[in-house]
Computed example of a mutant assay.
Amino acid sequence: MSIKQLKDINKNYISQTFEATVLMSDIKVKASKNGKRYADVIIQDSSKAMEVKYWDYEENEEFINSLSPENAINIKAVVGEYQGQIQITIKQIEKANMDNVNIGDLIPTSNWGIDSMKNGLDFFYEKVKSSHMKKLIDRMIFSNDYFKKFSTHPAARQVHHNFYHGLLQHTLEVLKFGYTVATTKKLSERQIERLIVMTMLHDWAKIIEYKALPSVGFTEEGTMLGHIFLGAHTTLNVINEIEDFDQDDKLIILNGILSHHGHLEFGSPVLPKTVEAQILHQADKMSGDIESIMSFMADQENEEDTFTTKLWNMGTDYYKKGIN
């Protein structure tokens, strides 16, 4: 059985075998209780990325290790179920004929449209009037060194905005949410400028933390240091290169970047200490949570159950009947 896209797979396919052309974007080799090595593999096409099992890794180790994220593969796999969740197990893998494959068709991509997103970013850029803050985002967002990465990188490995242009879409969502709150609560123009700058930079270092698509996962630097430290550290270095950067703006922007996860136990080394930082945290959480829920519901929209399965990072299932 062939499928058009990975997102089409649902519980109606359990016990069935399917064929598909996908990218193998990441692989983690593990060992079972009896010591036999197997692989958790992340495969993807334009509709979604998913983790699947490959139990025959040991027998095909050399071949599997020769594959790269830039090379499409043809797979034959069976759909199963484990602890109430769909589990895909690969039975056969072979290299695809790249003459018949467009890699762009196999990479999940934002549906917002890159031109529209660039216009949105320009809208908020024009709200920043202070020259020192404008220089900061000019160097870190809009420079030739960084803009392509910032506008194409994913914002996460799996949970939310884990697609091409994902970081840019997430940043724009946070900017929109935050700006709405800031203007509703009548923050000063200076506060709004700082909020815009810290929002643009809060996840900036994900261009360092995550590999560029079609690869999936963390870089060594990202694993060792994380995007919060990398973002604040780079921002501080750039600020120190800008003549007469206002000290209050410096402290407030850095606190916003460092505290945007909102809680020490969630990875922020400090708590939000300003209204701007608290708005950023809440807007960031809303963007990530809602995208996570909506993409999870979309993955299960073709299943007949009234509720989704439990979404692990939100701790609950979701009602589906009212979405259409």
Rank of each mutant, 00 (worst) to 15 (best):
Ile107Met: 09
Gly322Leu: 04
Val270Glu: 06
Trp55Val: 11
Asn255Tyr: 06
Gly166Phe: 15
Ser15Asn: 15
Ile90Leu: 03
Asp248Ala: 08
Ile73His: 03
Leu136Gly: 13
His153Thr: 10
Gly315Trp: 15
Met294Pro: 01
Lys185Asn: 15
Leu67Cys: 12
Ser215Lys: 09
Ser47Glu: 07
Ser47Ala: 11
Pro154Ser: 12
Met24Thr: 01
Gly231Thr: 12
Tyr54Pro: 05
Thr235Ser: 01
Thr219Glu: 04
Pro269Asp: 04
Met297Pro: 10
Tyr179Asn: 11
Asn102Thr: 11
Leu172Gln: 07
Thr21Met: 01
Gly178Phe: 02
Ser32Ala: 11
Ser116Asn: 13
Ile93Thr: 02
Phe218Ile: 10
Asn34Phe: 02
Tyr210Arg: 01
Lys127His: 06
Val101Asp: 02
Gln83Trp: 04
Asn111Arg: 07
Ile242Arg: 05
Glu241Tyr: 15
Asp305Pro: 14
Phe266Trp: 06
Phe177Ser: 03
Lys321Ser: 04
Leu264Thr: 11
Asp40Ile: 13
Leu121Ser: 13
Glu58Cys: 00
Thr308His: 03
Phe18Arg: 08
Leu280Glu: 02
Trp112Ser: 08
Leu195Gly: 12
Tyr82Met: 14
Glu126Cys: 13
Glu58His: 01
Lys129Trp: 07
Ile103Gln: 06
Thr223Ile: 10
Ala205Met: 11
Val29Pro: 14
Leu225Trp: 06
Gln247Asn: 14
Ile253Glu: 00
Asp248Arg: 08
Lys186Cys: 02
Thr184Lys: 14
Phe229Gly: 05
Asp138Lys: 13
Phe147Arg: 14
Glu58Phe: 00
Gln87Ala: 03
Asp40Cys: 03
Thr274Phe: 14
Asp317Ala: 14
Val128Gln: 06
Val22His: 02
Gln85Trp: 01
Ile88Tyr: 06
Gln92Trp: 00
Thr199Glu: 10
Arg194Asn: 13
Pro154His: 00
Ala298Gly: 06
Ser25Tyr: 08
Thr306Asp: 06
Glu61Met: 14
Gly267His: 03
Lys76Ala: 08
Lys134Thr: 12
Lys76Met: 06
Val128Pro: 07
Lys135Gly: 13
Ala156Thr: 11
Phe307Gln: 10
Met140Arg: 07
Thr234Met: 15
His263Cys: 04
Ile64His: 06
Asn237Val: 15
Gly217Val: 10
Asn324Leu: 09
Tyr38Gly: 00
Lys4Glu: 03
Ser46His: 04
Tyr318Ala: 14
Leu172Lys: 05
Lys118Gln: 14
Pro272His: 01
Lys185Val: 14
Asn302Phe: 09
